[in-house]
Amino acid sequence: MKIKQYHMLVIGASAGGLNALAVVLGRLPGSFPVPVLVVQHQGGGNDSEYLALLLDSMTALRVKEARPGEVPLPGSVYISPAGYHLQLELSGKLSLSVDLPVNFSIPSIDVLFDTAADALGASLVALVLTGASSDGSKGLKNIKSRGGLTLVQSPQTAEAPQMPEYAIANTRPDFIVPLQDIGALLCRIFLVEAVNGGRQSGDCL
């Protein structure tokens, strides 16, 4: 059997996302073989800088705010800055824009997912986490139609179930996974050993 090669992981999260991201990323080893791009909806201000610092302390991966023109590296996580859309260009570089909000959101998960689908097509893995929004479901469908692998956090394990529910209704994702198991599944997909222990979803941040 030929094992499919994936080149990037994209993640969308909204309400409850900090905890969910900590749980998921906490299981991924520093040797994770692809870059991870994350859109987390934010309230404005400089929340994204703080979020990147916080997550960086909770995972073996390097977590930072995305910068335009940057080539994303394996083992690194790039967080969308508050107030900017995060995009992947065909050149493989990250870009930012201050276009109007999409789904009332800037950054928007659909924007990241659609641009990443254009750039990487079938070699993309996408994950929709907790949130009270419909953002991400269109982009996830797009990724699935291009042959990418689609994962959604099971709504029962989400602090805000709407975003996973929308994504599931819209896409018929490849995997619907409880929060606790997402990290391990990602490690199987990307052929690396999961970090044991890690953060439990019940832990207080």
């Binding site: 260009e89 824009s97 276009d99 641009t115 254009d118």
Partner: peptide, 9 residues
Amino acid sequence: YAGASLKRR
């Protein structure tokens, strides 16, 4: 122009 935002517009 960078392609991603241009295409969306």
